[in-house]
Design a protein around this nucleic acid. Sequence first.
DNA 1: GTCTATATACTGATAGAC
DNA 2: GTCTATCAGTATATAGAC
Lengths: 202, 202
Amino acid sequence: MARKPGSRAEITGPRLRDAALILFARHGFAAVSMRQIAAEIGVQAGALYLYIDDKQSLLFDLMRDHMEALLTAWQDSLAKAGQGANPQTALDRLEHFARFHIRFHAARRDAVFISYMELRNLTPDNFAVIEGLRRQYETELETILRAGQAEGSMVLPDSKLAALAIIAMLNGVNTWFREGGRLSRDRVEDIHVDMVRKAVTP
Amino acid sequence: MARKPGSRAEITGPRLRDAALILFARHGFAAVSMRQIAAEIGVQAGALYLYIDDKQSLLFDLMRDHMEALLTAWQDSLAKAGQGANPQTALDRLEHFARFHIRFHAARRDAVFISYMELRNLTPDNFAVIEGLRRQYETELETILRAGQAEGSMVLPDSKLAALAIIAMLNGVNTWFREGGRLSRDRVEDIHVDMVRKAVTP
DNA sequence: GTCTATATACTGATAGAC
DNA sequence: GTCTATCAGTATATAGAC
């Protein structure tokens, strides 16, 4: 009996992706071998190729899944916020975005890390796809900033640049925040929301 | 004659570091082979080991040199600004820091990239050294922010967190700014300075 | 579905000729 | 100072047994 007792195909695939995500985030895509991933989930290296085409498409799938989950979660969050009867101001929507961004990314640190750090390990075609998804997300914020300018509640010399700067600031949280540290997640969120609001108001 | 005509030891060492910096930034430390670096500067792989101990210490040296250059340049910039007779407000010093940060980093994109991205490829000992230098730099900004609070010109719930958030925002410039793009470097600088000032003022 | 075994190529680093 | 040659180890990916 070659098949290991208790082996189950329907869970090996997801476990492979989970293990790869963690290992890529920790050591980097190029530094992780297929053998390491296989060892992590208790199979031989050859068995991985039942679930993936090659190492490159494994990385690409992880990044695409993350970006699509991000965009979907944002749309869901928007829809939920829109259910209330009262219309939101652009500043409220900016705060909503900032809190969503910090929370979503804090819950998926490994995927975030990979999606920003391993872009250069994608083939040009795969890079273009991920880059497109990232732009889509940036545009969501930019739309809010433009609305704020139209309202007059925000003053921004360049809404595209402001969007990038705000996302960069919010992403910073991901590089150093640890649950259980000096500041609670809520406190970190509040402080960032405050700085972001002030940065865009007259 | 084994030695290549025109070979000069005094320039091969620096050329090795320059080539490694570019290749590591472009493809990642783990993805770059010693042979690639050697090919880039026109020598054989074995010859590299006349100038470095091993691949790890090559990475470490690049990162340490960058961080030390950053700290030295900041001290120089501070000294130059201090030569004027009039004392600077904390907000002026914050603006000075922001402009210095953007300019210094824009001029050394590859070194910056490596120093943030390849931390996980350092041995624990080497990591601790680089981390210490990075903290030193963060403390420079934090000192300015504390002075602003003492003056009353700034309102910050947490100066350490504010320092990290500001640096994160300023670092964002490095990931997308290209000379000759839609916005000039001065314009990008001005917009960031404006947002940073507003983010910390009451 | 997973195993073992293997093909082919490349890795970092060293030894010794010149 | 740089070369060639090489070592021992590892890489991705595949073939075929069970």
